[in-house]
Design a protein around this nucleic acid. Sequence first.
DNA 1: CCAGCACGTGAGAGCGCTCTCACGACCGCA
DNA 2: TGCGGTCGTGAGAGCGCTCTCACGTGCTGG
Lengths: 345, 345
Amino acid sequence: MTVSPPEPRPTLEVVAARAGVSRATASRVLRGAANVSPRARDAVLAAAAELSYSVNHAARSLVTRRSDSIAFLVAENEDRMFHDPYFLGVLRGAQGEAARCGVQLVFAIAATAAERRQFVQFVGSGHVDGVLLVSLHGDDSLARDLEGLGVPTVLNGRPFAAETDLFSVDSDNVGGARIATARLIDRGCRAIATITGPLDMSAGRDRLAGFRAALGSAGLDPDGPPLAEGDFTLDGGAAAMEMLLREHPELDAVFVASDLMALGALRTLAEHGRRVPEDVAVIGFDDVREAQLAAPALSTVRQPLDELGRTMTRVLLARTGAVDAGPGPRQRTVLATELVLRQTA
Amino acid sequence: MTVSPPEPRPTLEVVAARAGVSRATASRVLRGAANVSPRARDAVLAAAAELSYSVNHAARSLVTRRSDSIAFLVAENEDRMFHDPYFLGVLRGAQGEAARCGVQLVFAIAATAAERRQFVQFVGSGHVDGVLLVSLHGDDSLARDLEGLGVPTVLNGRPFAAETDLFSVDSDNVGGARIATARLIDRGCRAIATITGPLDMSAGRDRLAGFRAALGSAGLDPDGPPLAEGDFTLDGGAAAMEMLLREHPELDAVFVASDLMALGALRTLAEHGRRVPEDVAVIGFDDVREAQLAAPALSTVRQPLDELGRTMTRVLLARTGAVDAGPGPRQRTVLATELVLRQTA
DNA sequence: CCAGCACGTGAGAGCGCTCTCACGACCGCA
DNA sequence: TGCGGTCGTGAGAGCGCTCTCACGTGCTGG
């Protein structure tokens, strides 16, 4: 242990005294409030600088009832969180935007019920002004619970129960899937399969819906094509591809609902000696960095991951009032997706 | 905007009243303090549950002068942070351990001087009880500044200035580099080059030191071998390899100070038609997941990334006294590294 | 039988800040 | 000259909790 210095951090009282003003005025200056004379302002600023004063967060927070920080919660286990570039992209965007707005990001993971309870407790204690909620499955009540606590929440994806009035930011999953599938049809592929995401998640469902819509538009049977449900992991994608190949060896294209799964599918296809794209064309979803590094480079649907995180943060901060975002944020924001053609389709 | 409910969160006062005890006793129960009768305890617990009470963090923090959260600061830009599995591994470990100890992790990035100042301000405000500091370059004063503020700090790697008494957790970089290099020598390689990490970082220096030590032990000239300084990025590794190949076309092995750089080097070697390991043997450092997925699979030195994060967190919490860690933590902890042989050496 | 000592409890101070309110100084306008 | 109004300021309350201190109760030991 090191000897801890006496370290008496100066209080506002001390700063005010040194500046020759009252605590109230010093507070006004430090908060940037209006109605302070330049003379007082300079004096306080100088005193604060000399004492290297910084306001006590707990004391401020106690009276303002704000913490100037927000939580980033991933409702997924560690493994998923740290291996899926999707989460990392969103986290990156959120972190950057939060920092830009002078708000701190508390990073949490809660996969189990116990972790969820602990998190709700944490939020209930007033640690954060709002919550960014990522990767909710099914009809999860977490968002509603938090809102019930009076804590603004923004989730990624689409709220699963259509009637909810939760705030959310999503990519255009339907549109992206549709355009990717259309591309496969344009190539002349007719035996088109899909590896879906988890169907208890909106992203999984919506991409499947887009896939089917594209088939329908082209006069193909939307319900006919082979389908395997994946779990957004590499191995899950590989396994799903394995199954599709076994049951539908004639397939000539696959739309895969995430890049990670597509990379797994590519592996399986290679193992089975199928050439990509000559024998089987593949299009993924996300456009993670690994997609362009893969051999062959993966064609995919780009969704702007960090923009997703940034937008979620902006919407949340607008709701908490931390940032005067002009008009109130919209309940539901949808970001455009874009087809990126490389080698696999 | 939604209509915010009146939402009067209950205070300790209310809980105490409902339980028929004083605020002090209620506080004792909720803190788990001793000297409370079972009767009082049960009453308070029941009242708290009924009201779904959770203690106001700001108020508690104001008097205890603790925040029960710690910061994870990466002194590196976003790009590096989110593309280097090293940071992600450490973050993962730290997050997990912090959660296990009931402490929250505030995640921050500070590459520029302005961001550093903002972070110091933030810490000075008492938001966190301690700081985990990752990827410090050169003789950075940040750790000392924070300690000067009275905030315990633990850094990864070795403090650059040997005489400092900062707390740190590191991998055995010298030992790892030595054993990797010894393996290359055992293979019969004699024209062994190295791509180092940034030499303003302890990890870069120490791995170079281990490399040289191994050469010396084998009777080779430690200062002779070709050396290129990399920056721990994929492209940096590729560029360094390019340079080595140009200036020392005869080389038959490379020890690369990080997997990411090694992957880049592999790319360059392939472009130049060098077979690995037949023409050039390669060993990396870190054992990130990509190393085993690469083709050919990368031989490397494993350092336990998440264990690094976990240990840093434990050391920090022991210092802050959040966790009664028995004996005081040691100033400097070094974790073992291990050679993992795959296809490239 | 009473000093001595735990033990459980409540009263009350106070952590460092923000915010409301009241007040004096000064302005322009009638 | 007088009056309403703005502007800058300070006094003081109070945010919700922890913690110290003192007190009453019931025990043991001399």
